[in-house]
Write a protein that binds this DNA or RNA. Structure first.
Lengths: 208, 208
DNA sequence: AATAAAATTGACGCATCGTCACCTTTCTCT
DNA sequence: AGAGAAAGGTGACGATGCGTCAATTTTATT
């Protein structure tokens, strides 16, 4: 009754191989079903149905529906994080620092629209936050780097916690707005956000 | 089996009187139980138990658990909104406008800590957003007023949607941080937020 | 007082959850 | 290779919570 074909050539025991495959299958099914039905409406059984596994098996991999969702968020976070780190390291001024971070984040949101939209769709009804320790790890590193940047003189000497909070707030709320637009423009969004913080918003007049 | 004593002296039919009383009783019980158990863990029965009413009665007043929660949020929003409007109207510069709004919001968050904390506690696990049409009405008016302000020259001519989004993001994320601090200071928070937007963050150096 | 209207009640049927005893597959060791 | 052990998969089951609804009680109307 198992429809799973193993194709991974890596040297792993069959056990590890199917475990990994199952885990991924559940995640894939979950992403799909969440997108179709929304978080609230999908049941654990809906998810497992898409994998050919038995209902009980789900619980060998995840504790609950919420945990799968969280795992999906983590997957997304993992995909942005390297780029964020990259940007952070190559910035030499605060403005570069900000523009790089915002651009990476907004671009990701537009690119991986599926993942982000899925998350957003679920946001409406009932929501697992994106700023849990796991998901926000990139931004937590951000706070550390802001501390660092202050020492190095790259970042102004302001309350790092508030600064981080404000940046996160700007990023997420603007992203929400952006994806609702007809033609989302990450560069424009990043410019706006950057100007708002470093220069005052006068810098980016809105063309009507 | 009804433990409710009517004490409202207003001239209302007994029907209206108990209806209003029941509605409020459910809301009060809900706030308490949500705070104790968290949104996810409380059941509709947990809520109704605190009122002496029967389980079916709950559904005469609210459609679901989520709806009560939303109603509680609306109650809170209703409490801030007049002050927000007040601030908005009396501002003559953008800076005043911002500082007023931020201060009202942060002060409310600190004052009505119970309501806000309840909300926050639930935020973690699973969350009903604060930016639904109802809750955010104050901020929706904000967007309208920003449009207005642009016309009047009080608010800089920038993309109003992004500006609103950014302000909301700053407000909520900073509020989250603020309430976690030992000695939350709404004035300092409002100063920070205002400086961040109007003047660039250099204006408020952080004392270490 | 009789009748109508409205609201309350709690038992019921339904759905989902998470568990667990049993079974199948994979691993290990000689 | 084969036997025993360990890991993992299975699906039926008990438990829990939901929302409904026919019956009942309470309030309004005439």
């Amino acid at each position: 009754m198992t429809q799973l074909e193993a194709q991974d050539p890596a040297r792993l025991g069959k056990r590890e191989k199917t475990k990994a495959a199952n885990q991924q299958a559940i995640l894939d099914a979950a992403r799909k079903v969440f997108a179709e039905l929304g978080y609230g409406a999908t049941t654990v059984r809906d998810i497992i149905r898409g994998t050919g596994l038995a209902s009980g098996t789900f619980y060998n991999y995840f504790k609950s529906k919420e945990e799968v969702f969280q795992a999906l968020m983590d997957e997304s976070a993992l995909r942005v994080r390297p780029a964020l780190i990259q940007e952070r390291l190559k910035a030499t001024t605060f403005e570069e620092f900000l523009r790089g971070m915002f651009l990476v984040f907004f671009s990701y949101v537009v690119d991986d629209n599926r993942a982000y939209t899925m998350m957003r769709a679920n946001s409406g009804q009932i929501r697992v936050r994106m700023d849990t320790p796991e998901v926000i790890a990139g931004f937590d590193e951000l706070r550390v780097d802001i501390d660092d940047g202050i020492e190095r003189g790259v970042v102004p000497n302001v309350d790092p916690e508030y600064l981080t909070a404000a940046l996160i707030g700007i990023a997420f709320e603007m992203a929400d707005r952006m994806v609702q637009r007809d033609d989302p423009d990450p560069i424009a969004a990043a410019d706006f956000a950057t100007a708002l913080v470093v220069g005052g918003i006068d810098l980016v007049p809105h063309k009507k």
